[in-house]
Amino acid sequence: MRRMKALKWVAGMMLAGAVATGVAHAGQIVVGQVAPMTGLEATQGRAYAVGMELAFQAANAAGGVNGNTFALVRKDDGGRPEDTVAATKQLLAEQKPLVLAGYFGTRNINDLVASRILEQDRIALVGYRVAEIRPESPLLYSVRATLRDEINKLTEHLATIGITQLGLFYEENKGAPALLAAADEAAAKAKATIVAKAGYAVGSNKADDAVAALVKAKPQAIIMVSTGAAAAAFIEGYRADGGKAQLFAHSGADVEQLLKRLSEEQMHGVAIAQVTPSPYKISNRLTKEFIDLVAKTAKLEVPVSYSMMEGFIAGKVIVEAVRRQKGKPSREGITAALDAMDSYNLGGYVVGFKPGMHSGSRFVELSIVTGAGKIRQ
């Protein structure tokens, strides 16, 4: 009996030592987000944040990852590029996040990359939205399909229904030449022609000139590569001026935002490329997990949306990158884990990265707005 008690005492001491060691290495992992929490794109920025928080709360409720829990710290840039850079510097200095996530805006991302903050602090940015075809950047990781993938999907679909005369509405940013070239290439492959291209100023939603140009050109269909605010302004003006073309938007236009700003009549028949599975129906294990978590949440900050699903995916990728590290998580460890994440299946949605290839998905499907203002795949 004495021997048994002694063995139990030793086992207890060993367990206590293991627990103490785990606590010593455990901590809170801060994820930093600088995005529009106010302004034209605030709904998307906040929805993306809520999606990440759902993923982090699920990981925390399960005991964390290797003894670590997750916390999201947000800062508002109002969509202004200069504020994105300044807020990121402040975030890095004060909260010292392990990783950044959920950024928005073409100029915002370009200015952030040009500032070299990511390289100087050796920190990765996982999950972002831009309206351009941009080159790969060493510390930027996208969890969505590329804009090129979306344009190819849209033009291929149009070709199958006999639509060959296209218009293009786009943001006049630094990446516009690459976008226009990609659109021409995709149209040529589909044996179609872009008969008119009309842009709008970066950071605005002034679409009057573009509306006039595309109404005059009379294409059969118009592809919109723009923010949600600009797409809403274009659709409103185009419908009001008698435009008859079918309207197709890339995923950044955010169907929920359009439905909120425009009438059912204006939105009827608008098709939008989606780069995540629908957040409204269970189609795989990922969507079931998301919908179950939403149902358990007492009060969501913003309504469920595709942006929220994308944020959820980004959050799960970050959790997995931490899980794959041995010992105390580090910024360098996050980057190494992401670069080795060749084919990570989240449950029906696959994300994969390699060194020099940071566009993590090829998933694109189309949704269309019905006469009742409902979204149908």
Rank of each mutant, 00 (worst) to 15 (best):
M1D: 10
G12F: 04
M14N: 05
A16H: 00
A24M: 14
H25C: 01
H25D: 01
V30N: 02
V30A: 04
V31P: 05
G32F: 07
A35K: 01
E41S: 15
A42S: 14
G45H: 07
M52Y: 11
A59W: 06
A62Y: 14
A62H: 13
R80I: 12
P81S: 14
K89H: 12
K89C: 07
A93M: 03
V99P: 01
N108T: 05
N108H: 07
A114H: 10
S115E: 12
E119K: 10
E119I: 02
L125Q: 10
R129C: 13
I133T: 12
I133E: 10
L139Q: 12
T146Q: 03
L158D: 09
T164E: 11
L168G: 04
G175W: 07
A176V: 01
G199L: 05
K206L: 14
A217S: 15
A221S: 12
A221W: 04
G228Y: 02
E236F: 11
G237P: 09
Y238S: 02
A240L: 12
D241Y: 05
G243I: 13
Q246C: 02
S251N: 11
Q257D: 10
L259V: 00
K260N: 12
S263Q: 12
G269C: 08
I272F: 05
Q274F: 03
N284K: 06
K288I: 02
V294E: 04
A298Q: 15
L300E: 06
S307P: 07
M309G: 06
G311V: 11
I313R: 04
R324S: 13
R324A: 15
S330T: 15
R331L: 14
R331C: 11
E332K: 03
T335I: 15
A336W: 08
D339N: 13
D339G: 08
D339A: 09
M341H: 00
D342Q: 13
S343N: 06
N345Q: 11
G348M: 05
G352Y: 08
M357S: 13
H358A: 01
S359M: 04
